[in-house]
Amino acid sequence: MKSLRWSLPLAIFVILVAFLWVGLSRDPREVPSPLLGKPAPAFALAKLHVPSETLATADLKGTVWLLNVWASWCVSCRVEHPLLVELAKANIVPVYGLDYKDEPDAGRAWLAQHGDPYTASIVDRDGRVGIDYGVYGVPETFLIDKAGVVRYKQIGPLTPEALKQKILPLVRELQK
């Protein structure tokens, strides 16, 4: 009973430190997406380069694909863009771009300037599809499997680490 006098406060302290350690090291900007493991919200949007054509989620059934949300006004998109261009060259997984709340002209000019890594880009002018995908900070990237289920979400710019350690291994596994 005597030992409780110091062991109990010590235990409480250790628990508190553990909680703070985990809690404070988390990034509050990274809100876990409720979409993970759920079917990707359906869309049918006009293509950026061929506005008369639409691309729908249904067209992509049976392929593993990445949906990268970008915009010409998005500054941090420039950070990840070289990585996407590189990924496109490697031809591992098709990347579709969602030009989010952007002027199509500005979007096309931006891709002409920085390179176009996308199999196709689609235009979400009013941001409705963005809302369906729970987009709150561009860039964001979703990995969607053959059945159309969201398997991974990257919030903020893609990093070489995230690509190498999480996304590409998952892509390979899903492509089997």
Binding site: V31, P34, D132
Partner: peptide, 8 residues
């Protein structure tokens, strides 16, 4: 909204 952005 919760379906899209979570309980947050």
């Amino acid at each position: 909204l919760v379906a899209r952005y979570g309980d947050f």
